[in-house]
Design a protein around this nucleic acid. Structure first.
Length: 423
RNA sequence: GGAGAGGUGACCGAGUGGCUUAAGGUGCACGCCUGGAACGCGUGUGUACGCGAGUACCGUGAGUUCGAAUCUCACCCUCUCCGCCA
């Protein structure tokens, strides 16, 4: 969420940045009109309330002096003023509600370094790491490898749950677990993150703070008869750890990592990625979340990205980093890097991590502040997060990159302790 | 599900209709003191909206009143005990 006053005072900038994302700016014109009405009501009703407050004190003084005759006309005056106050208050809350609806659906301003573009084809490659592996045979897609090995079962998953669910067994299930442990050990042991195991069901205020609500409810699974949603990413519960809190600057940056399942309805992606593990209603992810000062958030974005890249480097998987263009950028983010891993079975780079800086956009919605050293006024923190990594897609990458001609799958060296300790 | 207790500022905690513009304490900031620190003393210390005077905010929402943290109603949450249960 952007600050109301900022929108009012920088309306042309906000419109330009919203247009850069390829979005309609008509709502911003409505914002200006409604906001003007709001200010007019505010000035009238606050004047009346001021009068009421002073009159109430006068009445109290008269009553104390047992001078009921002098108090009477004031009481009558206030009875009349109150009916006008009630009128204005009602209009004010209606106006504020529609203003709130608009402000909550205005996306974050994209950073100046974000390239202008329409969709993912306009994303800009920043760098690549490693090389595409070469094969003496034609590499297969992971769904063929997995089904042939008997470790991926999509048919039974469909029977149990439906489409876009998977059943992992044996080596695949164990490797998924090994990957999660490996990633968590790396981020907690080497990168200084604190491990979190959060709730997987969260309420409306939490979903609103991080930006999933009110605009993207159709992407979420909701629990019937409860104010609870299945998390689409650990970003939601972990960022909400400090909702409505004031942190101390010396404690920043706060760095958390969490391994959780993620649940997404994938509404509107009907024909896409129907085979394999790439696009599921349920998948596992190790998430990285940071709370920082405004001064350091862009540096922290670079190190967050480096922390995520490290996972792929240690696994020996070729990837590239892209900067998302304005049209592909998420609603709450000011800048996002995607890491795309190479999948030889599909001869394509596929997103395996998304690392974003949200500036104070989520912090304002969730009221996450910090007190700068030596200052008395608190400020909003900056929040960041990124996948470190999507575990299911990492499993896919290993299956496709480490496949052998005989149909078996090699185990990356760093993963061997995790896999073998389970045997 | 049944019974009871409670939700007040960064934190603890007083406060049952108008000297509450929320006591007191802790923490924090600044100043004094000190060679430097601790201790001590003093001052200050929330959020939102508004150019500002100011207005609003004591779990949430509605109500009573000239006036509500304080009274009424509904709801939410936390804790304790009982029941059920992984």
């Amino acid at each position: 969420m952007l600050e109301l006053r900022f929108i009012r005072e920088n309306i042309e900038l906000v419109k330009a940045k919203t247009a850069k994302r390829g979005l309609d700016t008509a709502m911003l014109d409505r914002f200006m009109a409604i906001d003007a009405r709001r200010l007019a009501i505010l000035s009238e009703v606050e004047g009346l309330k001021n009068r009421r407050n002073t009159a109430s004190k006068e009445i109290a003084d008269f009553k104390k002096a047992a001078d009921h005759a002098s108090a009477e006309p004031l009481i009558l005056e206030m009875k009349e003023a109150n009916s006008r106050i009630k009128e204005l208050d009602e209009e004010l809350s209606a106006v504020q509600e529609s203003l709130q609806d608009i402000v909550m659906s205005v996306p974050n301003l994209c950073d100046d370094s974000v390239p202008e573009g329409r969709d993912d084809s306009d994303n800009i490659e920043v760098r690549t790491w490693g090389d595409k592996p070469s094969f003496s045979f034609t590499p297969k897609a992971h769904w063929d490898i997995g089904v042939e090995l008997g470790v991926l079962d999509f048919e039974r998953a469909a029977k149990i749950s439906g489409s876009r669910f998977a059943l992992l067994s044996g080596q695949a299930a164990r490797m998924e677990r090994a990957l999660a442990n490996f990633m968590l050990d790396l981020h907690t042991g080497e990168h200084g993150y604190t491990e979190i195991l959060p709730p997987y069901l969260v309420n409306t205020p939490s979903m609103t703070a991080t930006g999933q609500l009110p605009k993207f409810e159709e992407d979420l699974f909701k629990i019937k008869d409860w104010d609870l949603y299945l998390i689409p990413t650990a970003e939601v519960p972990v960022t909400n750890i400090h909702r409505d809190e004031t942190l101390e600057e010396r404690d920043l940056p706060l760095k958390y990592t969490a391994f959780t399942p993620c649940f997404r309805s994938e509404a509107g992606s009907y024909g896409r990625d129907t085979r394999g593990l790439i696009r599921q209603h349920q998948f596992n992810k190790v998430e990285l979340v940071k709370f920082t000062t405004p001064e350091s958030s862009f540096d922290e974005l670079e190190s967050l990205l480096a922390n995520a890249e490290k996972v792929l480097q240690l696994l020996g998987l070729h990837y590239r980093v892209v900067t998302l263009c304005s049209g592909d950028l998420g609603f709450s983010a000011t800048k996002t890097y995607d890491i795309e891993v190479w999948l030889p079975g599909q001869e394509a780079y596929r997103e395996i991590s998304s690392c974003s800086n949200f500036l104070d956009f989520q912090a304002r919605r969730g009221a996450v502040r910090y007190r700068p050293e030596g200052e008395k006024k608190s400020k909003l923190v900056h929040t960041l997060n990124g996948s470190g990594l999507a575990v299911g897609r990492t499993l896919v990458a290993i299956m496709e990159n480490y496949q052998q001609e005989d149909g078996s799958i090699g185990v990356p060296d760093v993963l061997k302790p995790y896999v073998e300790s389970r045997l």
